[in-house]
């Protein structure tokens, strides 16, 4: 096989991709650490959290959210159409699971056949389904 300009450009593109993923993970990790540290310290002492600590935790969350938005935008302007399609399919499947799952659960709750819908569980199921759908598509085009 010929190793030429294309291979070099491909390596450059992959490096850019992983740099973005790393930056996104780093923002999340720093924000998570700050929030977890403040929450953990308050939990250990049993003291009420100071206004300064709460402001720092809120700031960390805002930075993580804005960082997530910025790096997601950079990510989607860097990746190719197959990656975008994989993400769209994963999002669509997650959306449908939420769209059908929540009303069904709520109706079962109304019929007194299920506990009240839990936002945390729904979030986890949607994220796991979307991640699984993304993983299957990636595996198929590996």
């Amino acid at each position: 096989m010929t190793v030429g300009e294309g291979e070099r450009l491909d390596a450059q593109r992959r490096k850019k991709f992983w740099r973005l993923i790393f930056a996104l993970a780093a923002v999340g990790a720093v924000a998570g650490f700050v929030f977890g540290f403040i929450y953990g310290a308050a939990d250990a002492t049993g003291e009420p959290v100071s206004d300064t600590a709460r402001a720092a935790a809120a700031f960390a969350l805002v930075v993580a959210t804005l960082g997530g938005c910025y790096f997601s935008w950079r990510f989607f302007s860097t990746v190719d159409e197959v990656e975008v399609t994989d993400n769209l399919w994963a999002s669509l499947i997650g959306f449908y699971i939420y769209g059908f799952g929540f009303p069904t659960w709520w109706a079962l709750f109304w019929l007194k056949m299920a506990p009240e819908p839990d936002g945390g569980i729904l979030f986890a199921v949607v994220m796991l389904s979307a991640t699984a759908a993304y993983g299957v598509r990636k595996w198929r085009s590996r």
């Binding site: 294309g6 070099r8 450009l9 450059q12 990746v79």
Partner: peptide, 14 residues
């Protein structure tokens, strides 16, 4: 005699 990566690089896709 191009690899998939070579072609991908030339096209700007993975």
């Amino acid at each position: 005699a191009w690899s998939q990566a070579e072609l991908g690089g030339r096209l700007g896709v993975s």
